[in-house]
Amino acid sequence: MTTDKAKEKVKALILPLAVLLAFEAWARATHLQSDSLAPPSEIIMALAGAFADFSILAATRDTLFSAFAGLAIGAVIGLALGIAFGISDTLNRLMEVTVEAIRPIPSIALLPIALIALGFGYRMEIVIVAFACVWPILILSRAAVRSIEPRLMEVSRALRLPAAQRVWKIIIPAALPRIFVAFRLSAGIALIVAVTVEIAINPLGLGAGIMLAQQALRPDLMLAYLVWIGAIGYALNILLVVAQHRLFGRAALSGDSA
């Protein structure tokens, strides 16, 4: 079993390694001079250089701070609305048109509004990330609350739990596995939106770093940033998938989590 899996992993690595080696060889053979491409060895050197002077680490901190702050705000708002809409069908139906009217606005379209209201910096980025994160969390947590075993709700009614305790002791624990899935999806969205805002306009973080490297005609540094942004996206994804498995096991996958 394990050797089979190891073999699969080795096979998966062949293509990327071959591409990198071929590219390196081609770049050396042609003495590549380009504003947009650099051989892998130079990219690695540029990445090491950016680590050595901490510039990439500072940029990473800025981006992750904005992404996580926006995610936290968006998650709280989305969760509160999602639970409220999940519990009360009346509220859900009354708000339907409002939600469906705001939700399709592409998050990045809010960028100019946030720009004139808040100026450049963390705040406008956090607001846009939060807006983008509210919707998936709202929709998935609403679905999660609705799919809670009805008998649990009956028990809470029989016990005459006050509303706050019903939410805290019954609804959130029962819906938590699926809420975490929503959170995991939103974390990916948060990172994407943060980087996009930085690339589009905000002079901050990894997105600004990669734009600056492009404008300075440093393809090696630009691609180093690209590799690093990809690595962060990948690591964040793996981290949250592992956390989900550890915390909830298979419960997150099925609707009827007991």
Binding site: L191, V195, L206, Y234
Partner: peptide, 24 residues
């Protein structure tokens, strides 16, 4: 077996990060 894992690896990349490369 050989190509799909590389694609899965690239998927979480925030696609907008490709913009500077495309501009260059």
């Amino acid at each position: 077996t050989y190509v799909a894992p590389s694609l899965e690896f690239l998927r979480p990349l925030p696609v907008s990060a490709i913009i500077p490369v495309a501009i260059a």
